[in-house]
Simulated assay, not measured.
Amino acid sequence: MKETWRWYGEPDPITLEHVRQTGATGVVTALHEVPDGTSWTAEDIATRKGLIEKAGLEWTVCESIPMEQCVKRGDSDAPSAIGRWKDTLANLGRAGIPVVCYNFMPVVDWTRTDLRWRTARGTGLALRFEMVDFIAYDVFILGRANAADNYDAGLVAKAEIAFKAMTEAEKLALETNIIAGLPGGALVQSRASIAALIASYQGIGHAEMQANLLTFLKEVIPVAEDFGIRLGIHPDDPPFSLFGLPRVVSTPQDVRNILAVSDSPMHGITLCTGSYGSRADNDLTAMAQEFAHRVNFAHLRNVTVEDDGSFFEDDHLDGGTDMVAVIEALLRAERAAQAKGSTFAVPLRSDHGHLLGEDIGRKTNPGYSYIGRLKGLAELRGAIRALTRQLDKEEATA
Protein backbone atom coordinates (compact mmCIF):
# COMPACT_ATOMS: atom_id res chain seq x y z
CA MET A 1 0.00 0.00 0.00
CA LYS A 2 1.13 3.56 -0.70
CA GLU A 3 0.85 6.29 1.93
CA THR A 4 -0.72 9.52 0.69
CA TRP A 5 -1.86 12.82 2.19
CA ARG A 6 -4.75 15.04 1.16
CA TRP A 7 -3.72 18.57 0.22
CA TYR A 8 -6.00 21.40 -0.90
CA GLY A 9 -3.52 23.38 -2.95
CA GLU A 10 -1.60 26.47 -1.99
CA PRO A 11 -4.43 27.94 0.16
CA ASP A 12 -4.10 24.85 2.41
CA PRO A 13 -2.55 25.89 5.74
CA ILE A 14 -0.57 22.64 5.56
CA THR A 15 2.27 23.04 3.07
CA LEU A 16 3.84 20.44 0.81
CA GLU A 17 6.92 20.60 3.04
CA HIS A 18 4.67 19.61 5.95
CA VAL A 19 3.37 16.76 3.82
CA ARG A 20 6.91 15.53 3.16
CA GLN A 21 7.55 15.49 6.89
CA THR A 22 4.71 13.01 7.44
CA GLY A 23 6.61 10.35 5.50
CA ALA A 24 3.81 10.01 2.96
CA THR A 25 5.09 10.01 -0.61
CA GLY A 26 1.84 10.60 -2.48
CA VAL A 27 -0.46 13.61 -2.64
CA VAL A 28 -4.24 13.50 -2.98
CA THR A 29 -5.55 16.73 -4.46
CA ALA A 30 -7.80 18.35 -7.03
CA LEU A 31 -8.16 21.69 -8.80
CA HIS A 32 -10.65 23.01 -6.25
CA GLU A 33 -10.25 26.54 -7.60
CA VAL A 34 -11.75 25.62 -11.01
CA PRO A 35 -15.49 26.41 -11.09
CA ASP A 36 -17.99 23.56 -11.41
CA GLY A 37 -19.17 23.02 -14.96
CA THR A 38 -15.69 23.59 -16.37
CA SER A 39 -13.28 20.97 -17.69
CA TRP A 40 -9.77 21.07 -16.26
CA THR A 41 -7.19 22.02 -18.85
CA ALA A 42 -4.01 20.08 -19.49
CA GLU A 43 -2.05 23.21 -18.62
CA ASP A 44 -3.66 23.65 -15.18
CA ILE A 45 -3.19 19.96 -14.39
CA ALA A 46 0.46 20.15 -15.42
CA THR A 47 1.00 23.19 -13.21
CA ARG A 48 -0.41 21.43 -10.15
CA LYS A 49 1.54 18.25 -10.90
CA GLY A 50 4.77 20.21 -11.34
CA LEU A 51 4.28 21.98 -8.01
CA ILE A 52 3.88 18.64 -6.24
CA GLU A 53 6.85 17.03 -7.97
CA LYS A 54 9.05 20.04 -7.22
CA ALA A 55 8.40 19.29 -3.54
CA GLY A 56 9.66 15.74 -4.04
CA LEU A 57 6.19 14.16 -3.97
CA GLU A 58 3.86 12.46 -6.44
CA TRP A 59 0.30 13.34 -7.41
CA THR A 60 -1.07 9.87 -6.71
CA VAL A 61 -4.84 10.45 -6.53
CA CYS A 62 -7.18 13.08 -7.90
CA GLU A 63 -10.02 13.62 -5.42
CA SER A 64 -12.39 14.75 -6.88
CA ILE A 65 -13.51 15.87 -10.30
CA PRO A 66 -16.71 17.83 -9.55
CA MET A 67 -19.92 15.97 -10.37
CA GLU A 68 -22.62 18.32 -11.63
CA GLN A 69 -26.09 17.93 -10.16
CA CYS A 70 -27.67 17.41 -13.59
CA VAL A 71 -25.70 14.15 -13.96
CA LYS A 72 -27.17 12.82 -10.71
CA ARG A 73 -30.66 13.89 -11.74
CA GLY A 74 -30.31 12.57 -15.27
CA ASP A 75 -31.41 15.91 -16.76
CA SER A 76 -31.23 16.82 -20.45
CA ASP A 77 -27.98 18.64 -19.59
CA ALA A 78 -26.41 15.46 -18.22
CA PRO A 79 -24.75 14.29 -21.49
CA SER A 80 -22.83 17.54 -21.92
CA ALA A 81 -21.82 17.54 -18.24
CA ILE A 82 -20.60 13.94 -18.52
CA GLY A 83 -18.65 15.02 -21.59
CA ARG A 84 -16.89 17.70 -19.56
CA TRP A 85 -16.11 15.13 -16.84
CA LYS A 86 -14.66 12.78 -19.46
CA ASP A 87 -12.52 15.59 -20.90
CA THR A 88 -11.05 16.25 -17.46
CA LEU A 89 -10.51 12.54 -16.89
CA ALA A 90 -8.67 12.25 -20.20
CA ASN A 91 -6.46 15.23 -19.38
CA LEU A 92 -5.59 13.69 -16.01
CA GLY A 93 -4.75 10.46 -17.82
CA ARG A 94 -2.48 12.25 -20.26
CA ALA A 95 -0.69 13.77 -17.28
CA GLY A 96 -0.15 10.31 -15.76
CA ILE A 97 -2.42 10.67 -12.71
CA PRO A 98 -3.13 7.01 -11.85
CA VAL A 99 -6.23 7.15 -9.62
CA VAL A 100 -9.40 9.26 -9.54
CA CYS A 101 -11.80 9.25 -6.60
CA TYR A 102 -15.31 10.65 -7.13
CA ASN A 103 -18.73 10.55 -5.52
CA PHE A 104 -22.40 10.61 -6.50
CA MET A 105 -24.03 12.31 -3.49
CA PRO A 106 -27.04 14.49 -4.29
CA VAL A 107 -27.09 18.17 -3.18
CA VAL A 108 -24.71 17.92 -0.21
CA ASP A 109 -21.32 16.29 0.02
CA TRP A 110 -20.01 14.89 3.30
CA THR A 111 -22.11 16.32 6.11
CA ARG A 112 -21.64 16.94 9.83
CA THR A 113 -23.57 18.95 12.40
CA ASP A 114 -20.64 19.75 14.72
CA LEU A 115 -17.08 20.38 13.55
CA ARG A 116 -15.55 20.82 17.02
CA TRP A 117 -17.17 18.23 19.29
CA ARG A 118 -15.25 17.54 22.48
CA THR A 119 -14.72 13.80 22.85
CA ALA A 120 -15.62 12.09 26.11
CA ARG A 121 -12.14 10.59 26.43
CA GLY A 122 -10.50 13.96 26.07
CA THR A 123 -8.81 13.05 22.79
CA GLY A 124 -9.31 16.47 21.25
CA LEU A 125 -12.12 17.90 19.12
CA ALA A 126 -13.88 15.63 16.63
CA LEU A 127 -16.37 15.83 13.79
CA ARG A 128 -19.88 14.72 14.78
CA PHE A 129 -23.21 14.03 13.10
CA GLU A 130 -26.01 14.52 15.64
CA MET A 131 -29.22 13.02 14.26
CA VAL A 132 -31.59 15.10 16.41
CA ASP A 133 -29.83 18.33 15.39
CA PHE A 134 -29.95 17.38 11.71
CA ILE A 135 -33.68 16.68 11.98
CA ALA A 136 -34.13 20.00 13.76
CA TYR A 137 -32.48 21.73 10.83
CA ASP A 138 -34.37 19.87 8.11
CA VAL A 139 -37.82 20.05 9.72
CA PHE A 140 -37.82 23.29 11.70
CA ILE A 141 -35.13 25.58 10.24
CA LEU A 142 -35.06 24.70 6.55
CA GLY A 143 -38.76 23.83 6.78
CA ARG A 144 -38.70 21.27 3.97
CA ALA A 145 -42.23 20.18 3.06
CA ASN A 146 -43.24 16.91 4.76
CA ALA A 147 -39.72 16.49 6.12
CA ALA A 148 -41.01 15.02 9.39
CA ASP A 149 -42.35 12.03 7.45
CA ASN A 150 -38.77 10.91 6.76
CA TYR A 151 -37.89 10.42 10.42
CA ASP A 152 -38.94 8.49 13.48
CA ALA A 153 -41.68 10.43 15.29
CA GLY A 154 -39.85 10.21 18.61
CA LEU A 155 -36.75 11.77 17.11
CA VAL A 156 -38.82 14.54 15.52
CA ALA A 157 -40.28 15.34 18.95
CA LYS A 158 -36.77 15.54 20.42
CA ALA A 159 -35.69 17.70 17.48
CA GLU A 160 -38.51 20.15 18.13
CA ILE A 161 -37.44 20.50 21.76
CA ALA A 162 -33.82 21.01 20.66
CA PHE A 163 -34.86 23.59 18.05
CA LYS A 164 -36.87 25.62 20.55
CA ALA A 165 -33.90 25.70 22.91
CA MET A 166 -31.48 26.99 20.25
CA THR A 167 -30.41 30.60 20.09
CA GLU A 168 -30.34 32.30 16.70
CA ALA A 169 -26.56 32.03 16.75
CA GLU A 170 -26.76 28.29 17.39
CA LYS A 171 -29.22 27.85 14.54
CA LEU A 172 -26.92 29.73 12.19
CA ALA A 173 -23.91 27.69 13.30
CA LEU A 174 -25.81 24.45 12.71
CA GLU A 175 -26.86 25.61 9.24
CA THR A 176 -23.30 26.65 8.43
CA ASN A 177 -21.95 23.25 9.42
CA ILE A 178 -24.54 21.37 7.35
CA ILE A 179 -24.79 23.35 4.13
CA ALA A 180 -22.11 26.02 3.90
CA GLY A 181 -19.53 23.79 2.29
CA LEU A 182 -16.75 21.57 3.60
CA PRO A 183 -13.31 20.83 2.11
CA GLY A 184 -13.70 18.82 -1.06
CA GLY A 185 -17.45 19.36 -1.02
CA ALA A 186 -19.82 21.24 -3.23
CA LEU A 187 -20.02 25.00 -3.60
CA VAL A 188 -21.15 27.03 -0.61
CA GLN A 189 -24.95 26.99 -0.34
CA SER A 190 -27.51 29.32 1.19
CA ARG A 191 -30.80 28.26 2.73
CA ALA A 192 -32.66 29.33 -0.41
CA SER A 193 -30.25 27.66 -2.83
CA ILE A 194 -30.19 24.34 -0.99
CA ALA A 195 -34.00 24.31 -0.77
CA ALA A 196 -34.16 24.86 -4.53
CA LEU A 197 -31.64 22.10 -5.17
CA ILE A 198 -33.56 19.66 -3.00
CA ALA A 199 -36.76 20.53 -4.86
CA SER A 200 -35.03 19.91 -8.20
CA TYR A 201 -34.77 16.20 -7.26
CA GLN A 202 -38.55 15.83 -6.93
CA GLY A 203 -39.69 12.53 -8.43
CA ILE A 204 -36.21 10.97 -8.36
CA GLY A 205 -36.11 7.86 -6.18
CA HIS A 206 -33.49 5.22 -5.49
CA ALA A 207 -34.09 3.39 -8.77
CA GLU A 208 -33.81 6.55 -10.85
CA MET A 209 -30.67 7.71 -9.06
CA GLN A 210 -29.08 4.29 -9.45
CA ALA A 211 -29.92 4.27 -13.17
CA ASN A 212 -28.33 7.71 -13.57
CA LEU A 213 -25.16 6.47 -11.87
CA LEU A 214 -24.98 3.42 -14.12
CA THR A 215 -25.45 5.63 -17.19
CA PHE A 216 -22.54 7.77 -16.03
CA LEU A 217 -20.34 4.73 -15.39
CA LYS A 218 -20.93 3.27 -18.83
CA GLU A 219 -19.70 6.55 -20.31
CA VAL A 220 -16.59 7.09 -18.20
CA ILE A 221 -15.19 3.58 -17.68
CA PRO A 222 -14.00 3.28 -21.32
CA VAL A 223 -12.12 6.59 -20.95
CA ALA A 224 -10.49 5.33 -17.75
CA GLU A 225 -9.45 2.15 -19.57
CA ASP A 226 -8.02 4.12 -22.49
CA PHE A 227 -5.77 6.13 -20.17
CA GLY A 228 -5.05 3.53 -17.49
CA ILE A 229 -6.78 5.45 -14.70
CA ARG A 230 -8.23 3.50 -11.79
CA LEU A 231 -11.58 4.91 -10.70
CA GLY A 232 -12.77 4.61 -7.11
CA ILE A 233 -16.28 5.71 -6.24
CA HIS A 234 -16.52 7.16 -2.75
CA PRO A 235 -19.45 6.09 -0.54
CA ASP A 236 -22.20 8.41 0.61
CA ASP A 237 -21.27 10.22 3.80
CA PRO A 238 -23.27 9.53 5.83
CA PRO A 239 -24.57 6.41 4.05
CA PHE A 240 -28.28 7.07 4.44
CA SER A 241 -30.84 9.51 3.07
CA LEU A 242 -30.47 13.20 3.86
CA PHE A 243 -33.27 15.69 3.10
CA GLY A 244 -35.38 12.80 1.83
CA LEU A 245 -33.04 12.29 -1.14
CA PRO A 246 -31.92 8.88 -2.38
CA ARG A 247 -28.34 7.75 -1.87
CA VAL A 248 -27.03 4.84 -3.89
CA VAL A 249 -23.48 4.19 -2.65
CA SER A 250 -24.28 3.23 0.93
CA THR A 251 -24.52 -0.55 1.36
CA PRO A 252 -22.75 -3.74 0.24
CA GLN A 253 -25.56 -4.36 -2.25
CA ASP A 254 -25.03 -0.89 -3.71
CA VAL A 255 -21.37 -1.78 -4.21
CA ARG A 256 -22.27 -5.07 -5.89
CA ASN A 257 -24.63 -3.25 -8.26
CA ILE A 258 -21.92 -0.73 -9.14
CA LEU A 259 -19.15 -3.26 -9.69
CA ALA A 260 -21.44 -5.42 -11.85
CA VAL A 261 -21.32 -2.71 -14.54
CA SER A 262 -17.82 -3.78 -15.55
CA ASP A 263 -15.14 -6.19 -14.35
CA SER A 264 -12.39 -3.85 -15.51
CA PRO A 265 -9.72 -3.21 -12.85
CA MET A 266 -10.02 0.45 -13.81
CA HIS A 267 -13.54 0.41 -12.31
CA GLY A 268 -13.47 0.04 -8.56
CA ILE A 269 -14.31 1.64 -5.26
CA THR A 270 -12.85 3.92 -2.66
CA LEU A 271 -13.14 2.02 0.58
CA CYS A 272 -13.88 4.78 3.08
CA THR A 273 -14.17 2.91 6.34
CA GLY A 274 -15.58 5.93 8.12
CA SER A 275 -18.33 6.60 5.60
CA TYR A 276 -19.52 3.00 5.27
CA GLY A 277 -18.91 2.56 9.00
CA SER A 278 -21.37 5.35 9.84
CA ARG A 279 -24.17 2.90 9.13
CA ALA A 280 -24.55 0.34 11.92
CA ASP A 281 -25.59 -2.53 9.64
CA ASN A 282 -22.48 -2.26 7.45
CA ASP A 283 -19.88 -4.86 8.45
CA LEU A 284 -16.61 -3.26 7.35
CA THR A 285 -14.49 -6.36 7.84
CA ALA A 286 -16.85 -8.38 5.65
CA MET A 287 -16.98 -5.59 3.07
CA ALA A 288 -13.18 -5.37 2.96
CA GLN A 289 -12.89 -9.12 2.49
CA GLU A 290 -15.52 -9.18 -0.27
CA PHE A 291 -14.41 -6.10 -2.21
CA ALA A 292 -10.68 -5.81 -1.47
CA HIS A 293 -9.77 -6.89 -5.00
CA ARG A 294 -11.73 -3.93 -6.38
CA VAL A 295 -10.43 -1.29 -3.94
CA ASN A 296 -8.54 1.34 -5.91
CA PHE A 297 -8.20 3.80 -3.02
CA ALA A 298 -8.61 3.55 0.76
CA HIS A 299 -9.72 6.21 3.23
CA LEU A 300 -8.93 4.82 6.65
CA ARG A 301 -10.76 6.39 9.60
CA ASN A 302 -13.10 5.15 12.31
CA VAL A 303 -16.44 6.19 13.76
CA THR A 304 -18.60 5.26 16.72
CA VAL A 305 -22.30 4.97 15.90
CA GLU A 306 -24.95 5.63 18.55
CA ASP A 307 -28.42 4.12 18.92
CA ASP A 308 -30.31 6.94 17.17
CA GLY A 309 -27.96 6.96 14.16
CA SER A 310 -25.74 9.78 15.40
CA PHE A 311 -22.01 9.18 15.10
CA PHE A 312 -18.69 10.80 15.83
CA GLU A 313 -15.24 10.35 14.35
CA ASP A 314 -13.19 8.23 16.72
CA ASP A 315 -9.47 7.50 16.89
CA HIS A 316 -8.24 5.61 13.84
CA LEU A 317 -7.81 2.26 15.59
CA ASP A 318 -10.89 2.62 17.80
CA GLY A 319 -14.59 2.95 16.97
CA GLY A 320 -16.87 0.39 15.39
CA THR A 321 -14.54 -0.87 12.66
CA ASP A 322 -11.82 -3.46 13.24
CA MET A 323 -9.24 -1.43 11.35
CA VAL A 324 -6.53 -4.08 11.65
CA ALA A 325 -8.80 -6.68 10.03
CA VAL A 326 -9.69 -4.26 7.22
CA ILE A 327 -6.05 -3.51 6.50
CA GLU A 328 -5.21 -7.22 6.54
CA ALA A 329 -7.88 -7.89 3.90
CA LEU A 330 -6.47 -5.11 1.70
CA LEU A 331 -2.89 -6.34 2.08
CA ARG A 332 -3.84 -9.93 1.26
CA ALA A 333 -5.73 -8.86 -1.86
CA GLU A 334 -2.86 -6.64 -2.96
CA ARG A 335 -0.37 -9.51 -2.59
CA ALA A 336 -2.65 -11.89 -4.47
CA ALA A 337 -2.87 -9.41 -7.36
CA GLN A 338 0.88 -8.83 -7.37
CA ALA A 339 1.46 -12.58 -7.51
CA LYS A 340 -0.45 -12.48 -10.81
CA GLY A 341 1.71 -9.68 -12.19
CA SER A 342 0.01 -6.52 -10.92
CA THR A 343 2.28 -3.64 -9.92
CA PHE A 344 -0.50 -1.59 -8.35
CA ALA A 345 -0.10 -0.53 -4.72
CA VAL A 346 -3.38 0.64 -3.20
CA PRO A 347 -3.05 4.28 -2.13
CA LEU A 348 -4.28 4.94 1.39
CA ARG A 349 -4.67 8.07 3.38
CA SER A 350 -5.24 8.75 7.03
CA ASP A 351 -8.66 10.31 6.67
CA HIS A 352 -9.78 13.11 8.97
CA GLY A 353 -8.34 13.44 12.43
CA HIS A 354 -9.10 15.06 15.75
CA LEU A 355 -8.07 18.61 16.50
CA LEU A 356 -5.20 18.18 18.95
CA GLY A 357 -2.82 20.44 20.84
CA GLU A 358 -1.85 23.66 19.13
CA ASP A 359 -3.99 22.85 16.09
CA ILE A 360 -7.10 23.66 18.18
CA GLY A 361 -6.28 27.36 17.94
CA ARG A 362 -4.96 27.34 14.40
CA LYS A 363 -6.72 27.76 11.08
CA THR A 364 -7.45 24.28 9.73
CA ASN A 365 -9.86 22.72 7.26
CA PRO A 366 -12.52 20.74 9.18
CA GLY A 367 -11.30 17.17 9.55
CA TYR A 368 -7.95 17.98 7.97
CA SER A 369 -5.77 19.25 10.77
CA TYR A 370 -2.11 18.27 10.75
CA ILE A 371 -1.45 16.67 14.13
CA GLY A 372 -4.61 14.53 14.23
CA ARG A 373 -4.04 13.05 10.78
CA LEU A 374 -0.34 12.55 11.51
CA LYS A 375 -1.26 10.63 14.67
CA GLY A 376 -3.67 8.51 12.65
CA LEU A 377 -1.11 7.86 9.93
CA ALA A 378 1.43 6.75 12.50
CA GLU A 379 -1.06 4.30 14.01
CA LEU A 380 -2.02 2.93 10.59
CA ARG A 381 1.64 2.68 9.56
CA GLY A 382 2.38 0.60 12.65
CA ALA A 383 -0.52 -1.74 11.95
CA ILE A 384 0.58 -2.16 8.33
CA ARG A 385 4.18 -2.87 9.36
CA ALA A 386 3.10 -5.54 11.84
CA LEU A 387 0.69 -7.17 9.38
CA THR A 388 3.29 -7.11 6.60
CA ARG A 389 5.71 -8.98 8.83
CA GLN A 390 3.01 -11.52 9.65
CA LEU A 391 2.21 -12.08 5.97
CA ASP A 392 5.89 -12.37 5.09
CA LYS A 393 6.25 -15.16 7.67
CA GLU A 394 3.19 -16.93 6.29
CA GLU A 395 4.61 -16.86 2.77
CA ALA A 396 8.02 -18.03 3.96
CA THR A 397 6.56 -21.10 5.65
CA ALA A 398 3.94 -21.92 3.00
Rank of each mutant, 00 (worst) to 15 (best):
S264M: 04
D237N: 10
L242F: 01
G228M: 10
I258A: 03
D281M: 02
E219D: 15
I221E: 12
L213W: 07
R256H: 15
S275F: 00
E225R: 14
F227I: 07
N257V: 13
F227G: 06
R247A: 04
T273Y: 06
L213A: 05
G228Q: 13
V249Q: 02
R230W: 09
G274R: 01
V248I: 14
L245S: 11
S278Y: 01
I233R: 06
V249C: 14
D236A: 09
E208H: 15
D263L: 00
H267I: 02
G277N: 05
S275Q: 04
Y276S: 01
L271E: 00
S275C: 02
E219P: 04
L271T: 01
I204H: 05
R279N: 01
P239H: 08
F243Y: 14
A211D: 14
L214T: 06
T270R: 02
V261M: 07
F227L: 10
V223H: 08
I229Q: 03
N282C: 10
P239V: 07
M266I: 00
H234T: 06
I258V: 14
V248N: 11
L271W: 04
G274H: 00
D254S: 10
I258Q: 08
I204E: 06
L271G: 00
V255Y: 10
T215E: 14
G228V: 12
A207L: 12
G268Y: 02
S250N: 09
I221K: 10
M266C: 15
L214D: 13
P222W: 09
A207T: 13
P238I: 05
I221H: 08
A260E: 13
D263V: 08
D254V: 05
E219M: 09
L259I: 13
N212M: 11
D254L: 07
L245E: 04
N212V: 04
L214E: 14
L213R: 10
T215D: 14
S278A: 15
P252Q: 11
